[in-house]
């Protein structure tokens, strides 16, 4: 019986007092890979933001290794080993690639930065070539690599990854998923938001479907593939 790393229990959260998510529950086991799917604007990103404490919890609870993170500051949650790789380009555009990466290791001891940097450069040689460049001048694919590389720098145990394949060429997506698969193989716990159904079915071992801020289906990926109605309604068949 695997231990539960991350547990979301009846969560209600949103913006400016208006809930976007209502009574949501999920759990991710140690070393597990859980996928979240659902249409645009239905609260997937909001869920990840609530888990990393960027927005307050309005109801319910979120627990890391059994301890509630309700009201805990975002940086403290990061300290507990949660790495959130945000959707889109939340990189520091006015800093160089190298500085973006070192910011990823903000909480790490100084002595470790060098070796982690080497590790990231091995995975993404492109970033090494461009390390002195302003992040704002990177291409879309390079930015995503930078965001992922920055996440790797912090060596957390629980990774929250938001739509890593969005708007990227299939080759780049392949490369990024190779990295994510390696992370899983290393034993990290992964909660991933993904719109690309085939990617998620290949990768995740359990899937939740969000609709209007609520889970409307959950199960194993191959179950999902057999569920024609869902595929048709949500994923365009």
């Amino acid at each position: 019986m695997a231990t539960t790393r991350l547990e979301v229990d009846g969560l209600t959260a949103g913006y400016h007092g208006q809930p976007v998510l209502r009574d949501l529950s999920l759990h991710v086991n140690d070393g597990g890979a859980v996928g979240i799917i659902g249409p645009n604007g239905h609260g997937k990103t909001t869920l990840l933001r609530a888990i990393s404490s960027l927005i307050p919890i309005m109801g319910g609870d979120i627990r890391l290794d059994g301890a509630s993170i309700k009201g805990v500051r975002a940086d403290r949650v990061v300290q507990q080993g949660v790495v959130h790789i945000p959707q889109g380009d939340l990189i520091f555009t006015e800093l160089t690639v190298l500085k973006n990466l070192t910011m990823g290791a903000y909480l790490a001891p100084k002595s470790e930065i060098g070796s982690r940097l080497k590790g990231v450069f091995e995975i993404f040689p492109r970033l090494e070539e461009r390390q002195g460049q302003m992040a704002s001048t990177l291409s879309g694919g390079e930015r995503r690599m930078l965001a992922l590389g920055r996440g790797l720098m912090s060596a957390g145990r629980i990774m929250l990854i938001d739509e890593p394949s969005l708007g990227l060429a299939p080759i780049v997506v392949d490369q990024i998923y190779d990295v994510i698969r390696d992370l899983k193989a290393e034993g990290r716990t992964i909660l991933i938001v993904e719109e690309n159904i085939s990617r998620i079915v290949d990768f995740a071992d359990y899937v939740y479907l969000v609709d209007h801020g609520e889970f409307v289906w959950e199960g194993e990926p191959d179950e999902l593939m057999r569920h024609e109605k869902i595929l048709e309604t949500y994923l365009g068949g």
Partner: peptide, 14 residues
């Protein structure tokens, strides 16, 4: 540049 992203790196904003 980005308060949220900085928090996600573990930077204590306050």
């Amino acid at each position: 540049q980005d308060r949220d992203a900085a928090q996600l790196m573990g930077v204590p904003v306050e």
